[in-house]
């Protein structure tokens, strides 16, 4: 499986993401710059975290309108897997590839800590390395991770089993509605999440709970 990482000015988790993909897949991902209008033939596109365009206007708003995002949208419509982490999740929402919005944390504070996630849907390509109901550790680091969607959208997300992860055990760090930490698209090939699985993939990180997510997305699980 080949992967690509999207690069935009102001992202700062791109190196962590490239390192994680390289270690897990054995080969480094391609990188794509914001002005690129096409993406190499890959099976997985990842938009990493950070502060693209300094979070001006709204987090991810400017990045979502850059040329590379049209190519990401085309790939997603073709069924290519797309993972957005943190700012990447914000960008996918602003680009309309996932429903809802991410707002300022309810506490108004930047949160940087480890939370527990419950695997709600283990039938996506991203979560199949876990069991439904399993609790995993995962770091978070964000100021605008407070997921919001209107009642109709929420009902649809739940009815279609599109909530992939929830914050578990009272660890909701940002006030997200229904403790939502990750959602997938209608076809299940696009996932956005606030936590950073790329920062918990090996012993040096203090654990590897995030590794199975990439193994699933890269077809490395049975």
């Amino acid at each position: 499986m080949k992967s690509a990482v999207v690069l935009l000015p102001g992202l700062n988790r791109d190196r962590d993401m490239i390192a994680a993909l390289t270690k897990i897949a054995g080969t480094p991902p391609a990188t794509v710059w914001q002005t690129d209008t096409s993406i190499p033939a890959v099976d997985l596109i990842v938009i990493p975290g950070g502060f693209s365009y300094g979070d001006y206007l709204r987090c991810g708003a400017i990045a979502a309108r850059m040329p590379v995002m049209r190519a990401v949208a085309e790939a997603a419509h073709r069924g290519v897997r797309v993972l957005g982490v943190c700012n990447g999740f914000q960008i996918l929402l602003e680009a309309g590839l996932l429903p809802g919005a991410l707002m300022r944390n309810a506490s108004l504070k930047f949160v940087c800590k480890e939370v527990m996630l419950e695997v709600v849907n283990a039938d996506t390509v991203f979560t199949r390395g876990y069991a439904a109901g399993q609790a995993i550790r995962c770091p978070v680091a964000h100021h605008d991770g407070n997921y919001f969607a209107d009642a109709q959208t929420l009902a649809r997300l739940k009815g279609e089993n599109r909530i992939a992860f929830r914050y578990a055990g009272g660890s909701n760090p940002n006030g997200s509605i229904e403790d939502i930490a990750a959602i997938v698209s209608e076809k299940g090939n696009v996932m956005g999440m606030m936590p950073h699985p790329e920062n918990l993939i090996e012993a040096a990180h203090g654990g590897s709970d995030g590794r199975a997510l990439f193994e699933g997305a890269l077809d490395m699980v049975a």
């Binding site: 206007l57 709204r58 309108r65 929402l93």
Partner: peptide, 9 residues
């Protein structure tokens, strides 16, 4: 509609 407002919120 395309940029200045996020019509979700």
């Amino acid at each position: 509609e395309k940029l200045l407002a996020n019509l979700v919120i």
